[in-house]
């Protein structure tokens, strides 16, 4: 069997499908990031809340962070239907990615909140601002901009973890590559292109984050 190692015709033929998959990967990343950014902030603020609640949230964050995302994806995929909740693969994926990364971003927000000088809290209290205004008017506007680069890094990590969703049948870029490979029994081209597509997007993104880091400084 003497077939060539790299077949350009085949590579170009499967490219549109792979790009379609990449689109789905990006959709999952964007939606997952939105969930992670919002929920992460909530988890971070809750950890500064009343003690019993803070402890429960802390435990949840630790549990999610020390167990695999893939298992959490399967967990939602298999367990939710038991409670009568049937969701599409993309929805399950966005929830799993969002919640998993929220536990990471909550740590980032927490570091940002901790870095706000004590004097700011004291001044806000002295001005007898209500609790909600202390957060939205004083603390968060100082804490959030500084953590943007760190959040950006997590978005990039999430982008690279979307292929885990092929396990529950999402046809993202890797799902498409797998499909093409299984159909034509040629795996070199689809997986190489898939890898290059990831590199093409995530490397410039990480350079951008590094530049941001230099501008705002890290915590």
């Amino acid at each position: 069997m003497s077939q060539q190692i790299w077949d350009w015709n085949y590579a170009f033929a499967i490219l549109p499908l792979l790009l379609e998959g990449l689109g789905l990967t990006l959709v999952a990343t964007v939606l997952g990031s939105i969930v992670a950014m919002v929920l992460g902030l909530v988890l971070a603020v809750l950890q500064r809340g009343p003690r019993p609640l803070a402890v429960v949230v802390r435990g949840f964050v630790e549990l999610v962070r020390s167990t695999p995302l893939l298992v959490q994806i399967f967990f939602l995929y298999f367990v939710l239907p038991q409670f009568g909740i049937v969701l599409s693969a993309l929805t399950v994926g966005v929830i799993a990615l969002g919640v998993h990364y929220a536990c990471y971003t909550s740590e980032v927000y927490r570091a940002g909140i901790d870095a706000v000088p004590r004097g700011q809290w004291e001044a806000a209290t002295a001005l007898s601002l209500p609790r909600s205004r202390v957060w939205t008017g004083v603390v968060l506007p100082q804490a959030v901009p500084r953590v943007v680069p760190a959040l950006g890094n997590y978005v990039i990590s999430m982008f690279k973890e979307v292929p885990l969703l092929t396990a529950i049948g999402l046809l993202d870029v890797v799902g498409r590559a797998q499909e093409a490979g299984d159909t034509y029994f040629r795996y070199v081209e689809p997986y190489t292109i898939a890898g290059l597509l990831f590199l093409l997007l995530s490397y410039p993104a990480s350079l951008l984050v590094r530049r941001l880091e230099r501008r705002v400084g890290t915590i």
Binding site: I5, P163, Y187, Y191, A194, G195, F198
Partner: peptide
């Protein structure tokens, strides 16, 4: 660091043996 770990896994398992 720029490519996905799952892609690397599939590449080593399905593409590398061909190469």
């Amino acid at each position: 660091r720029g490519t996905s770990e799952v892609v690397q896994l599939f590449w080593i398992f399905f593409a590398l043996p061909v190469l």
